[in-house]
Amino acid sequence: MSKPMTRHADVQTIPVSFTLNGRLQEIDVEPNELLLDMVRDRLGLTGAKRSCDVQVCGACTLLVDGRPVSACTTLAFEVRGRSVMTIEGLADDGKLHPLQEAFIEHGGFQCGFCTPGMLLASKALLDENPNPTEAELKHFMHGNICRCTGYKKIVESIMAAAKKMRA
């Protein structure tokens, strides 16, 4: 059985070493700490949003080993040894990702609150399926909610990015 480090008689802490947006990150967390709080409050990456808090809306989406997770309902220690991408890591050294460019070009957002989650979820989609049909796109993305209800432009943006990335 592994023995997590203990900092204090009653407070258990777990050392977490992981890759965050391509860089090694080491941090001690308590078992009940949520990934979203660690990323936003302790590491200062506020792109992921807390919204529904029950894994329905997708505003807190992060990629863990390339797959989308709800950071609001993921315990922080779960990223031990894994690779985490937040929206802050999507652009490559200042150069926007094709999805980001497409969202700008096609007006794929209104208020922008859902956009970080939309971008990361759609990145995961295109990484595993570079040429999705619109039905496949909608099935994959149906757990990411836009309350401005601008889905048409979002779908157009992702389809346009997919086309560009395949070229």
């Binding site: 989308p68 997770v69 309902t73 993921t74």
Partner: peptide, 12 residues
């Protein structure tokens, strides 16, 4: 299984 909840729930 393809239609359980959403992609994030199915992942975890």
């Amino acid at each position: 299984e393809q239609n359980v909840a959403n992609v994030r729930v199915r992942q975890a």
